[in-house]
């Protein structure tokens, strides 16, 4: 019966992972250090909670009386999102193709990849500031900002999608004597098109979100209205704007789900 009683010196299946434990210890040390370094304290937080209830009290009921101002901001945000998404996707189609290493020689793809990475590095708000300085306040700065942001994001994804295609179809089309444009249209695009649609609808969503934000630095849209409402302490109007923004984004997600199911 020795086989049954041998459980004494069996290894514990749930043994302590020292590496993970060390990481957790480090995290705790870091939290203590950073709370001290930044001067965060419980009193400060507690004091804020009183303000929070005050703020929330002033937010309800949301004030929709300045309906026309809200609508004009909303429409401008929508226009910025639509124009910048379409321009951004159009530019990204070409840049993505040029950045794909299996389609292009490296002397084309490397500079294009660097350009795309550069577009992605800075937060849209920083790009918006630079554009507001160069083209003035208004929707144009917002559009240019979101075009740059879209290029940085989807051109990279397009390039990665093109790099993952099967080259057999490309060879088959090339064997028929097709030119470069036909190879792209009939062998590359059919393989990546549904993924492109997925990326594009995602980008449309995120442009919709960002178009409500770039206004904070003066680049047009609902963000400017929101920021000035905050500065004038019109918290009931702020609540109305926030509700409209959330509704707009949910509507956008609903629409992009429909588009995705059509192109599946």
């Amino acid at each position: 019966m020795a086989g049954i009683n041998s459980s004494q010196n069996r290894e514990n299946p749930f043994k302590q992972n020292w590496f993970v434990t060390a990481i957790w210890l480090l995290v705790i040390c870091y939290v203590v250090y950073s709370f001290n370094a930044m001067g965060l304290s419980w009193e400060r937080f507690n004091e804020g909670l009183g303000h929070a209830s005050n703020l929330l009290g002033r937010m309800v009921p949301p004030n929709f009386s300045r309906w026309s101002l809200l609508m004009s901001g909303l429409i401008e945000s929508l226009e910025i999102a639509v124009i910048s998404s379409i321009c951004g996707i159009f530019i990204s189609l070409f840049l993505g193709l040029f950045a794909a290493r299996n389609m292009m020689p490296s002397w084309i793809s490397t500079p294009v990849r660097t350009l795309i990475a550069l577009c992605r590095t800075f937060h849209p708000v920083i790009i918006a500031i630079l554009f507001v300085k160069s083209v003035g306040f208004g929707a144009l700065a917002g559009i240019l900002t979101l075009v740059v942001a879209s290029v940085g994001f989807i051109a990279k994804l397009f390039a990665e999608a093109i790099e993952e295609i099967s080259l057999k179809q490309v060879e088959a089309i090339r064997a028929t004597g097709a030119g470069f444009t036909s190879i792209i249209l009939f062998s590359v695009m059919p393989q990546v098109f549904s993924r492109f649609i997925g990326f594009s609808t995602y980008q449309l969503d995120s442009n919709l979100r960002n178009s409500t934000m770039v206004g904070i630095v003066g680049a047009g849209g609902l963000g400017g209205t929101l920021f000035s409402a905050f500065q004038r302490f019109d918290y009931d109007f702020v609540a109305a704007i926030l509700i409209i923004i959330i509704a707009l984004i949910m509507f956008g997600e609903f629409l992009s789900n429909i588009v995705r199911s059509i192109f599946r």
Partner: peptide
């Protein structure tokens, strides 16, 4: 996810005042 981080920051600045928190 719908509320942008800058908008969250505006909200918390009006609650806790300007600063790291």
């Amino acid at each position: 996810r719908s509320v942008n981080s800058l908008v969250w920051a505006l909200l918390f600045v009006s609650i806790f005042g300007p600063g790291v928190i």
